[in-house]
Amino acid sequence: MKKFMNDPSSFEADMLEGILLAHGDELEALDPDRRALVRRQAPSAGKVGLVTGGGSGHLPLFLGYVGQGMLDGVAVGDVFASPSAMVMLEVTRRVNSGSGVLYLYGNYGGDVLNFDMAAEMATDEGIEVESVVGIDDVASAPKGEESRRRGIAGLFYLYKLAGAKAELGASLAEVKEVAEKAIARTRSMGVALSPCYLPSTGQASFAIGPDEMEVGMGIHGEPGMERLPIEQSHQLVSRLLEPMVQELSLGAGDQVSVLVNGLGATSREELYIVYRDVHRWLANFGIEVLLPYIGEFATSLEMSGMSVSILSLEDELVELLAHPCDTPFWRQCR
């Protein structure tokens, strides 16, 4: 393992100190450990508070999307570990303007457990809390068992759409409805080429041969669907797109947004080659791409690999996706 760091045991603390030094004008830490982060102006009067959380090691997920037009607060865990329910509760209290709080996060056991606990405690305190859980990773469980699927880069769409809806002054029920629509219309699938190394142990998250790829691998190195010899980009893209397009029942005349996400150590050049092949594959079926996103949105430390997410668009979603936002890791102008 080679990493730019100091003491491995202060990996998260040093990273968070850097985040606050760089983005302290936008973000505020509620605790000395900087595990509870909120938008400086939180709560915004009358606005539904959007809260996320999860382990470190995935920047820009999760804290990178706290800001105008997206999220109001985040609970930050250790690398690949859930933050505590107490931190989530602290964030919840602060971002609640009285209009309720919506939890948006990925479907991982520890996170679900802690967010459920936090929701229960917040409810006891009289705060209205709802939850919508990201389950975009097609490879993590078969169709029909969607509730077992993990949340990966498609979480970006969940944050962006619900964030814009909340910013426009919608009620908790209305924001939740958009979040659920985002879940129903987003699918993702990833491929890994090389592992990441946990700073605390120096251990590789998995072993893989030099000419192999793992299709469907999760963002913590969870086993995927199959291990294959690496293919050309256009072949791989069609392998990834087919199940997604089928599940979303996409056909000629439909409009989608595409998100090509690097897992941490894959070049932008490669991501644009993948985007080319995605765009051409979809165009071949008469499917139009309106708003493409290419870059790093949900990483796994220095893992190399990428994921493709597809959002099936409709009128309201196009507007919400195009709505301006301003966060430390994602800015979008009208």
């Binding site: 865990g77 570990a81 859930s82 933050p83 505590s84 329910a85 107490m86 931190v87 056991g109 520890g110 457990l113 802690n114 606990m117």
Partner: peptide, 18 residues
């Protein structure tokens, strides 16, 4: 319980804490 849930948010720590 709150102390356990704060400092040890593993599955067992959270469940036991709460």
């Amino acid at each position: 319980g709150t102390t356990m849930a704060s400092v040890a948010p593993s599955t067992l720590g959270t469940l036991l804490g709460f």
